[in-house]
């Protein structure tokens, strides 16, 4: 077990937990989306850091280069980035819609309006 060699995972975990905390602890919906993005990027960093090889270069085949970093995580993450922006866009559109319906983007105020509506019957 090589503890110092694991620092990349720990950076990822700190970032991931920061994003997670924002998502569950903050009431503002836009802030939640930013937190989700941070979470997402930490996963990207996790994959890319697993693909890195010591002494390797970018995986573009050239003469005189023997060692390349692993290209497969890069391919996966390219897809993931694009899917991520799609979910972000959809989430932001939902926020605009919620704002139009409720006049607020704070979770607790939306909740209060809902319970008030329920109480009115």
């Amino acid at each position: 077990m090589d503890i110092p060699g694991l620092y990349n995972y720990w950076i990822v975990i700190v970032l991931m937990m920061t994003g997670f905390y924002i998502v569950i602890a903050r009431g503002n919906l836009i802030k939640k989306i930013v937190g989700l993005n941070i979470f997402q990027t930490s996963v990207f960093i996790l994959y890319i850091s697993m693909g890195k090889v010591d002494g390797g270069t970018a995986p573009i085949i050239a003469e005189g280069v023997e060692r390349y970093s692993n290209p497969l995580p890069h391919v996966l993450i390219l897809t993931a980035i694009v899917v991520g922006i799609a979910t972000t866009a959809l989430g932001l559109a939902l926020i605009v819609r919620i704002r139009a319906a409720y006049g607020t983007i704070e979770e607790d105020e939306i909740h209060a309006q809902n319970t008030m509506k329920d109480a009115d019957g």
Binding site: T41, I48, G51, K52, A58, S69, H74, I81, G84
Partner: peptide, 14 residues
Amino acid sequence: MDAVDVAFTEAAVG
């Protein structure tokens, strides 16, 4: 970390 293609996409999209 040698992922140049990913970096392009992240800078443009993210």
